[in-house]
Design a protein around this nucleic acid. Sequence first.
DNA 1: GGTAGCAGTTAACACCGTTAAGTCGTAAGT
DNA 2: ACTTACGACTTAACGGTGTTAACTGCTACC
Lengths: 205, 205
Amino acid sequence: MNKQSLKLRIISAARELLLSDGYRNLSLRKIARSIGVSATSIYLHFESKDDLVHTLIEEAIERLNRALEISVVNKKSPVKKLEALAQTYVSFALKHPREYQVIYLVSSEEMTRYPKKKFRKARKGYGLVLDVLTEGISCGKIEEENPNIAAYTFWAQLHGVMSVVLSERLDTRIDQNEFIEEAINHIISGYITYDSLKLENIVDN
Amino acid sequence: MNKQSLKLRIISAARELLLSDGYRNLSLRKIARSIGVSATSIYLHFESKDDLVHTLIEEAIERLNRALEISVVNKKSPVKKLEALAQTYVSFALKHPREYQVIYLVSSEEMTRYPKKKFRKARKGYGLVLDVLTEGISCGKIEEENPNIAAYTFWAQLHGVMSVVLSERLDTRIDQNEFIEEAINHIISGYITYDSLKLENIVDN
DNA sequence: GGTAGCAGTTAACACCGTTAAGTCGTAAGT
DNA sequence: ACTTACGACTTAACGGTGTTAACTGCTACC
């Protein structure tokens, strides 16, 4: 009937409903209704609701990763790259809060275990940070004895900051943007050497 | 019938089921069944399921706060206090993962808005960090131009780390404990001055 | 022309949160 | 002592959920 395959139509309907109504109000019946098929048709292409949501998560992760990759290409110094990654991460979370939050739905409590093979893609962002860190270490601008772990710490810290912001746990007297900016500075300065900390503001890119 | 009031029996049954089966499988009917009353009885004491869960969250926050308060009393240096707070926070999350995760259920997507007045209690932990930071600043061991914001970034970073650990997003080749330890060091060193960073390992408490 | 298989359907199951109406015992009022 | 009122609790029901099994109709092939 429709040009797109049913599977694609399901995915985009699901994404649309997720973004408009939130994960909490996402139901298979609503998704099906919105594209004029029966709810059970979804099971022809996904083995469960969680399976469908997993692909939405995958999508979101890919979009975030793409944004991160792009943000880094025209930056020369590793420190600038690190800053770009952090800034892009934060912007993504602010611009697409529901999409961002769905990425972190992979918690063991809210969803059946995220399949291991899909984690590969999720780790691409981690790889980006790792590359920047090792590059920075080799040219002495970044100090880190175990970059494998540091790359994860970097993500974790950023996620923590955005999670506090998005769940509106912030004291109303604290300005959100100021908080984010200060947090990013804090996180980044934790990775770079004292020397480049002072130099960075002079040189571009 | 029972000695305890029904409200208390509901709360403790709910907590028990939450810890054993997870938030995802928590239902009013199961809670009611487990204490031998009808599901609608819950509405005599709570105005909705979310309301009940909110009190569970409140409980969990209080337990975490209590642990944090205790951890800090016999420490003398602000830096040691900060370390104790971080360590206690992490231990709590590891020892009671479900209880910890329920605290962060207050996200706008999973739950109706957490009532503002209950946020007061939640901010007690924030107050603890703030005190330690201002104390450290006044004696020159901690460097921070805006402690109000810094107290939040401290929480946020810790939460990010534990959220990555608990959602099992960590690369299997990375040792969990090593990651946590390194992350804590990273976060803490972001707040203390270069001098005390070198001195801390010599003096106790 | 029959038939196998695929894409989609309907019907049903067992659950869910929530509301309205009913029951039953106890305490107070007269 | 009889009625009334009220509180604590239950039953019945509504509209929703994810998921399974059985059915329909169509298309392609032998």
